[in-house]
Amino acid sequence: MTAPTRKGVHARLAVSPPGEPPRFRPGRTLRLRVEFVRQLKRRRTQFAGAVVVLLPVIMAVAFKVGGAPEGRRSGVTLVSLATVGASNFTMFVEFAAVGFLLVVLVALFCGDTVASEASWSSLRYLLALPVPRARLLRQKLVVALSLSFATIVALPAWSLAVGTVFFGSAPAQSPVSGTLSFGDSLGRLGIVIVYVCIQSLIVAGLAFLLSVSVDNPLGAVGGAVLLFVVSNIIDQITALGSARNYLPTHFQYAWVDALSPQISWDNMIRGTGVALAYGAVLLAIAWLRFERKDVTS
């Protein structure tokens, strides 16, 4: 390659003596806006967004084409009421997505954030900039959790919109008994969203810990999901009795208590306690590990 402009560079360097040392403010490094731009332009973020947008539409079309599903022998279920109206449709989408899809997406946002920087080698340049390590993690976590929560909010919100178009805004019908007005069901939906956000702290913490421990994004995301699935499987062993209450996934679905005529808060309260404890422990380990880690990748 020829370098016709290089002489200009030399001239410029010659007249640019080192001035005052730059004023460096650690609190301004890697601002959230910058990190958001870095993450939002990524394919995986756009892919996740596409899934959230398409899933409710696909489900609504499937229900429209395949007809209303029938109640099974176990009684009236959320799925058999899915086509009653927008609220019921949303509840069903939420029920179907919480177990795996939202777990994967949260694990993706939180597990991939540091590990992918390590795999691109850009992590060491951020640290050499220097972005203080604790701040790097904080900014990354804030952005990853924001994206996670945005997904958790966006899925039901979008489902509500899609459901209204396909099935109208009939009052929500509870599988237990009776109906909830549209306003009531919005309130219940809000409770559900808040609880799912709190519960997602567990998988977020797990993924984030793996993200700072592993230089491979796939390992971090996959590892978090794998551990989550294992916890779910152990939760199926009823012989474990009350020991299962301490599994990270045990209270994952406690939000369905918010759909009963009388909201029962007990398991949501327990689940919140468990999520806070797990989230704090996992994130603390992540911070300590990263602070003393030798960045060699």
């Binding site: 099974r72 176990s74 009684g75 279920t77 237990v176 994952q252 406690a254 369905v256 009963s260 029962s264």
Partner: peptide
């Protein structure tokens, strides 16, 4: 009276 968190029934 309540919805099962396992199957939604």
């Amino acid at each position: 009276a309540v919805i099962s968190s396992e199957a939604g029934n």
